[in-house]
Design a protein around this nucleic acid. Sequence first.
DNA 1: ACGATATTTCCAGAATTATCGAAATATTGT
DNA 2: ACAATATTTCGATAATTCTGGAAATATCGT
Lengths: 103, 103
Amino acid sequence: MDLDHAARCLEKLGHPTRLRIIRLLVRAGPDGLSVGAVKEHLGIPASTLSHHIGHLVSAGLIGQERRGRILRCTANYPLLDSVVTLLTEECCTGLTAVRKRAG
Amino acid sequence: MDLDHAARCLEKLGHPTRLRIIRLLVRAGPDGLSVGAVKEHLGIPASTLSHHIGHLVSAGLIGQERRGRILRCTANYPLLDSVVTLLTEECCTGLTAVRKRAG
DNA sequence: ACGATATTTCCAGAATTATCGAAATATTGT
DNA sequence: ACAATATTTCGATAATTCTGGAAATATCGT
């Protein structure tokens, strides 16, 4: 996970609708949710949703598996974790870290 | 820190140049760096840099304090921490968290 | 006041992103 | 084969973002 890859992930996460999608899928657990279920939750047009999901898939932030007519989306926990880790280690290792160590 | 605010911050962090700026300032510590110093490090035109810094300031991710001719920029550690925290708690509280607890 | 340094604002063009209806594709059950 | 459901792709428009040269602004030292 280099800085550019992290930036690409953060860019995708940095849209309200997409951040909601990620939150939904994370909360849904390892089984994730179908595209249709996400659509129900967010109440946005199918084509708009499909584009946003496409962004997230292209960045690897979510995975997809077809089960019959339904396309199941799951959060890529390890990648999300990597992004958070990089953000923490590379970009938050200043005063806050010192404070935390100091208690 | 609600989801929309977090999305705004992530959007700003989600650009390679801006993520580099943040990293520089975080590593620079509480005193931060002048705009000129950041420009030296990144090697980009002043106006381009100024725009990016403007983005970060508007999102509150960095602060500025004028000292004579020099404008000192500092990372907003608490805000960065809030973003990471929200991302962790709201969006990474799935399998990864379970794994971590399990060891 | 002036010249030098630091940084922003103005301006414009190119590129990218967001939105969503309509049409297309994929899959299932009958 | 057909109707129904699930999802994507197409196509078009509007909006936003990115970039950087040139000009403007701010501050300092003399």
